[in-house]
């Protein structure tokens, strides 16, 4: 019995690792609630890129992004008004919102969410 179990575990591990590998970087987020409906590519948000430069609390604060994936209804109007991405993407700290293709860089048809990890299903607080 023990051998069967061990073998099954080994097989399961092997199968899991053979599954089509996702190449997205750990923590990448796809935003596509409204982008494609409005004729734009989905937005790819790379956590790693921002983490190299800023602390978590810099964006995840009372004026910014809730941590729970999908709980932020980000739209261009608010970004241009200096909220969400617009806190930095204002041509002062980072490139401005007129450079559409820098952020709207995803493949068509992607569904939104955080990649390469379990979903953040938590209470959606800061």
């Amino acid at each position: 019995m023990c051998i069967i179990k061990r073998w099954l575990i080994a097989l399961a591990l092997g199968m899991a690792l053979l599954a089509p590998a996702a190449h997205a970087e750990y923590g990448d987020v796809v935003l596509n609630k409204i982008a494609e409906k409005n004729g734009m590519r989905p937005v790819i948000f790379p956590h790693w890129f921002h983490r190299l430069r800023f602390t978590c609390g810099n964006c995840h604060n009372e004026n910014g992004f809730k941590m729970k994936a999908g709980s932020n209804n980000v739209n261009m109007g608010e970004i241009i008004d200096g909220k969400f991405c617009g806190m930095c993407h204002n041509n002062q700290i980072a490139w401005g919102p007129e450079r559409c293709d820098m952020c709207h860089s995803g493949k068509p048809g992607l569904s939104g969410g955080i990649l390469r990890g379990n979903e953040t299903l938590g209470p959606g607080s800061m």
């Binding site: 970087e25 990448d28 790819i44 293709d101 995803g106 068509p108």
Partner: peptide, 13 residues
């Protein structure tokens, strides 16, 4: 361009 997320044809790539 090969991460299955970014559009390799996109101008930002």
């Amino acid at each position: 361009a090969k991460d299955d997320l970014h559009d390799p044809k996109g101008p930002g790539i």
